[in-house]
Design a protein around this nucleic acid. Structure first.
Lengths: 330, 330
DNA sequence: CCTCTATGTGTAACCGGTTACAGATATTAA
DNA sequence: TTAATATCTGTAACCGGTTACACATAGAGG
């Protein structure tokens, strides 16, 4: 059927052990022999069965990637970063959407292990779940913090502070903060960072609690926001999707943005710059985070000495059209 | 180390063959024996090594998914549809970005095979490449047509026609059509469909040729469009990203949308409805396409009788704020 | 010329499952 | 009671690689 190492050995007139030595470049092989084997490999277009390999070595070129929902526009960038980083080192991805559901995560981790993946990158809210604590292979938490485990994340709390500082600096004083889903850690970090600053500034604030990051519901929360807090003059949204919905609703009901209401998002998804007005937001370097996670995991897998297992990337305020210009003497 | 079928056999006091029979529910097993084995499986929390299984059976629960670029917002929906469809049948995905690069596709297909995937879903521009022609496992082309191979796609040509009809019906007569990257088939289909109708209507048209679907360059083409064809009163964009860039640029240079310029996009990515004004577009049912592809591939893998190997899904005009209301007598 | 080490290659066990086959026992039919 | 058949279970080969080990030969050093 498909050509095996045995076929190569026969054609080259050597044993399978020798072929194995050649293709893995291990142990002693005479130059002439190596040539014969390489020719046979080419002639038969042989490439080794990774499954057989993996069975014996308990290794593979696979790693597992678990994200909440690839259809949420923040995650594809992470995924792409991970993929590019892995691809360069010849690792492949088994990918799954967890929907932030511990049970689904469990199932995926299970099949990852069954397929001998060398490591896992996971955006989970349950880093301390036994699922992970009992894993015998390296895990990197991505976009989620766990100080005692390797992780790559942006400074969400500082992001929240930054958003609050910038919006206050630009003159909003009846701020509404959207609090993202309570079980999603980064959402809470942002929220806490934001109210910390607002409180410190002695300002009042209102809260809109949301329960998902979905497109469909974003519109509803935006409506709720302006009906409950119609006097608000500044919105710190839980992410860019929510911010876009707020912007949409604000314009729909005739508010001027940014003159009547300022809006700051979170993530800086690619879309944000194309809006009109462009969305001011707190940028997370998602692609870079994905790459860093890939690099960190590969390091762990290869037992390289790792200097820093907790990589925190900086967030950044991206000033666009939904915030006012700050006065020059400010 | 990890518990194997041998451990289960020992604990249950039977042979590995019997354990295998129990976990695969195949052949004769005495009820009492089955109970003993099941208890042992539970006690040891055993789950079979899929790699070992796959080596002997040449089967697996893996399929390969190849998309051009998950960071392009159209594809995550496809991916999610595929994933959900596969997940329900306990299949897992090995995922890769091809960047529309035949070489990269080649490499991925290679590693898919090395890992015994049962089938492949691919968005490729090269369905007739030897890569695919020589594959011995089922392939489903997704979002790309190949009449002689299983495929799931939307009717791009009709989508182009639809866009042209709707924009003409609403009064544009100096239409600019954006022609997407020439090597991407669906982009060409749309383009051809659009100019077919415009020509039939006896109208003149201009063309802006683009070479990628990337966010960064979208803005440049939008600028080029209005500088070269400043009198245009209707734009049929190559996709929603391009359309958003055009909308952005139009507003920036002070055109009224839709009064001065109408814009129609393509895809209906989730963002489109959140814009202000909302983007009128030709909708492709991406998530549904992904699911259908998953279903079709599973059917092929399981050699079920397939009624229709070429699933074409309908496109649909979604009327939002970047096109004018059609007059009621129209 | 002899010993010691470096080089080169093959045999066979092993990874963890599945399954063909054989042998044993229980059940059924005549 | 006996033959035929159905049920139950274990032994061992197999999937396609990797590698420990044994053995053979060549080259180096004295």
């Amino acid at each position: 059927m498909t050509t095996t190492i045995k076929d190569v050995a026969n054609l080259a007139g050597v044993s399978v052990a020798t072929v194995s030595r050649v293709i893995n470049d291990r142990g002693y092989v005479h130059a002439d022999t190596r040539k014969k084997v390489e020719d046979a490999v080419k002639a038969l277009n042989f490439s080794p069965n990774e499954v057989a390999r993996s069975l014996y070595t308990r290794k593979s070129k696979l790693i597992g990637l678990l994200l909440p929902d690839i259809a949420n526009p923040y995650f594809p960038q992470l995924a792409r970063g991970v993929e590019d980083g892995m691809q360069e080192q010849d690792f492949r991805l088994i990918f799954g959407n967890s929907d932030e559901d511990e049970r689904k995560e469990q199932d995926y981790i299970q099949t990852f292990i069954q397929n001998n993946v060398m490591g896992v990158i996971s955006s989970t809210n349950y880093p301390h779940s036994p699922i992970y604590e009992n894993l015998k292979i390296p895990v990197v938490f991505l976009d989620r913090t766990s100080l005692d485990s390797p992780s790559v994340y942006a400074d969400g709390r500082e992001g929240g502070r930054l958003a609050a500082r910038e919006i206050i600096k630009r003159g909003s004083c009846r701020i509404t903060v959207m609090q993202g889903p309570s079980h999603i850690r980064p959402a809470q970090d942002r929220f806490e960072g934001a109210i910390e600053i607002i409180r410190d500034a002695g300002l009042d604030y209102r809260v809109i609690q949301t329960t998902s990051f979905s497109f469909n519901e974003a519109g509803l929360w935006a409506e709720e926001l302006f009906s409950k807090h119609s006097d608000t003059d500044g919105v710190i949204a839980s992410n860019d999707i929510a911010a876009m919905a707020v912007l949409h609703e604000a314009l729909r009901i005739g508010r001027k943005v940014p003159d009547d209401v300022q809006i700051i998002g979170f993530d800086d998804i690619p879309m944000s710059s194309i809006l009109s007005p462009g969305l001011s937001t707190i940028r997370q370097p998602a692609y870079e985070m994905g790459r860093k996670a890939a690099g960190l995991l590969i390091g762990l897998v290869e037992q390289a000495p790792i200097e820093n297992k907790n990589i925190q990337l900086p967030v950044e305020f991206i000033e666009r059209g939904t915030t006012r210009k700050v006065s020059t003497n400010g």
